[in-house]
Every structure is written in C-alpha cells, then in structure tokens.
Design a protein around this nucleic acid. Sequence first.
DNA 1: GATAGTTTCATACAAGTGTTTGAATTGCAA
DNA 2: TTGCAATTCAAACACTTGTATGAAACTATC
Lengths: 220, 220
Amino acid sequence: MASDHTRTALLAAAERLYADRGFGDVTLRDIVAEASVNLAAVNYHFGSKDELIAELFVTRSIATNRERLRELKAAEEQGGGRASIEVILHALVGPTLRGCLGPENQRSTAARFMIRASIESVPPIRRIKNREIDHLRKFAGAMRRALPDRSDVDIYWGLNFALAMAHHTIRESERLTKLSEGKCDLDDVEDVVARVVSVATMALTAGRTEAKAPSKVAAR
Amino acid sequence: MASDHTRTALLAAAERLYADRGFGDVTLRDIVAEASVNLAAVNYHFGSKDELIAELFVTRSIATNRERLRELKAAEEQGGGRASIEVILHALVGPTLRGCLGPENQRSTAARFMIRASIESVPPIRRIKNREIDHLRKFAGAMRRALPDRSDVDIYWGLNFALAMAHHTIRESERLTKLSEGKCDLDDVEDVVARVVSVATMALTAGRTEAKAPSKVAAR
DNA sequence: GATAGTTTCATACAAGTGTTTGAATTGCAA
DNA sequence: TTGCAATTCAAACACTTGTATGAAACTATC
C-alpha cells in the first residue's frame, strides 16, 4: 500500500529527532511537526509513543543482530564448525562499533539513534534489551566451542568485558576524545574493533587466576 | 543550625526514591511526601529539582573520587613516587565497584543511587560527569609514570577499557547474572575487581602491535 | 457513482509537571 | 515582649505531556 507514507515519515522523523536531541526532550508534537503529519497519526499508526520508539529500536537491533550472526555463521562454516575466538569476538563487537562510530559527519541517522539508545535508556528500549539474552547465548556457545578448556564463568566474563569495551567506547566516545586530546582516533573504526577484540581475546585466553604476573613484557 | 532538618530529610528521601525507582518516575511530590515536608521546600532549599539531584550526585561522586585518590596516593608514596599499574588500576575501579556491587540486600542507598545514576543519565548528572575529566587525568598521569614506555594513546585506551569493564559490569550486573545463570558471582566484589584489573593490566602491558592489522583477523 | 472502510484532521481532554506566591508560623535576638 | 528574619505551608499557576474523539477527507470496491 502506498498509504504507508505517514507511517514511514513518522519513523524517519522520530529517528532523526531522537538521534539529534535524545529521548528526553522530543515530544510527540515535535515528531509530527518534523514529519508534517497530524498529531493523532502517531497513536493511529503505532498505538502509543512508546510503541513507536520500540519499533524504531527493534528494527535497528534486528539489523545489527542479523549482521552479527551472519559474520559468526560465515566464520564457523569456514572453520568447519569452529571459529577462532578472535573472529567470534569480531563478529560480536564489529557490527555495533561499525554502526555507531566513524566520522561524525558521515554517521547515519540510524547510527546516531543507536548511540542515543545506548546512552539514555528509556523504558520501551530497556524492555527490548532484556530480551537480547538469547542472542548473546549463541555467542557464548560459539566461544565455548572455540575455547573448550575454558570454564563457563570465564567465557561469560569475557563476553561481558567485550561488550563492555565496545559499548562504553561508544557511549563515552566524546569524553575519550576530550580526555586524550584527540590522540585516540575514534574515527578509525577498524582500529577500535581490533583493540577491543585484542583485549577481549587476552582476557579469554590468558591464565587468569594467577594473572598477578603478566610478565610477557612486549615492548614495541 | 538544627533547621537543616528539612534539607537533610529531603536529600535522604530523594536518594532513597531515586535508588528504588529511578529518576524517570519520581516526582517532586513523591519526594516531599517521603520526607514529610511541604512541596515548596525543594525549591526553597535547593532552588530547583535539578539542583537537588546534582547535589546528591556531587556528594557521592566526591566521596568516590576522594577514595580513589586516597588509594592512589598511598600506593605511589609506598612505591616511592611510582606505583605499579595493577595498584593504580585497583585504585581506579576498586572504589566504584566496591560501592556499587556486593550482596543486594546489604547494598546501601548511596550505592543503589549511584547505580541508577550510571544507568539512567539525566541532564544534571551528565553535566557533572563531564567535569570528571580532570580527575581522570590524574590517573592517566600515574599510569604514564608506571608505564613510561607506553604511548599516550595506549594509556588512554587502557584507562578507557578499565572504566568500561567496571561501569558496564555495574550497569548490566543483572543481565550478566541472568546470562550466566548465576555462575558469575557479582557479590564477590574483590573477585570482580581482580578480574577487571587483570584484564586492564594485560591490555596495557601486552604488545599490541598486531592490532593495527585488522584485515588479518577479518580474513581468517 | 454510491458505499464501506481507511486515514487524516482540528480540537479537546485529563492528568501531571516543576515552580511561584503570599500569608502563616516559627525561632531567635534585643 | 517585641521585632525581624528565616522557614513552612496551602494553594494556585502556567505549562506540557500523551491520548481520545468525532467529524471530514480520502480510497477502493462493487
């Protein structure tokens, strides 16, 4: 139907506004003005404001998760059912980082929206994030297969730390840039991905109980 | 004078409510009801709702930061001006983790408040967090002294990742528990601290030269 | 071209928000 | 006690919010 027009316009307008100004101070009236439609349209097409936000976030999440699984599947098939831990971690954090970082002026609306979503945490989005666990379990499974000697506990901590580094870097990218006076280049996305993967790999492969002695002094 | 009573009651009540229900749905009327004072008291004593939140957060932040610096100073003095990187990282993430994790039923109101603050990110708090950079620079300095061979970029990335792991673990502690089906014990705070410090230390000390070749990882 | 079903629109609604006001009350000093 | 400032209080204010309504304008089907 061509009558999706209003729906689509609303989604686009909302995403744009949320990306620019955050969830906190964007009202329904702002959205319908940006989309040049009537105030009642949101409730007619989505039921409520929260459902509009949810649909927006779900769409983007599904895209990211699909990308993640695509990378994971490809890697596992190529490795005959077992991928290396680096590649798994790469599939886990790559899509998110690639989607949210990169030169600011060429960052897509979708990317900026997802950054907001990771910073602000509004109820409808939180509800959806809680359902992400099944998705993460797939990665935990792959990681277990890649590191069969590792305990479950270590796997989960590694997974947690990998996500931590990726998400925190996105959330606080501005602060890191300021803190490092521009020395940390967040526009070089592949370098960021490589750093996160590298550290997470170390976390997962190094002996950790006796981690008191890192010893392996590798000077540059 | 003893007439601080209303002020104090307001601070305590607000902290309790925010800790329990988050910033999103606690109104001034909730707060004054909890504190058994008049609605106008907030504006009389604090000027505005935001300033009340800010005062709450500043107080707690100062406490944490002081604790961090205390640990750092002690370590540096003991090491004759240069502390080991592990100890520095310990001073950086220890106080926060210790303040926010631990058995839920014995978690202080202050702790639960700070967790909320790290999850929800409301304007007055965001403003304050942005001023935290000077504080972090002190740690960057100490880390540089501990690892004189390391480039500034690496130092900042290590700092970033250390904070990432600590904060993300706090923010998503519930999800990690659920994901790991309780196998990751977040009540054992010192173990969490040790894990974070260990991984961050590896990130800062291991050779990372291969990190510049992402294609190698991707093409595997 | 009439009819039934969608979609749009202006408008109103109900509820909740932080803040202000000005009078009442309190506490303290002279 | 009197006087004066600091504090408390009930009430109202001024807005903003998301949502609901019912009529009007479309669109497609017969």
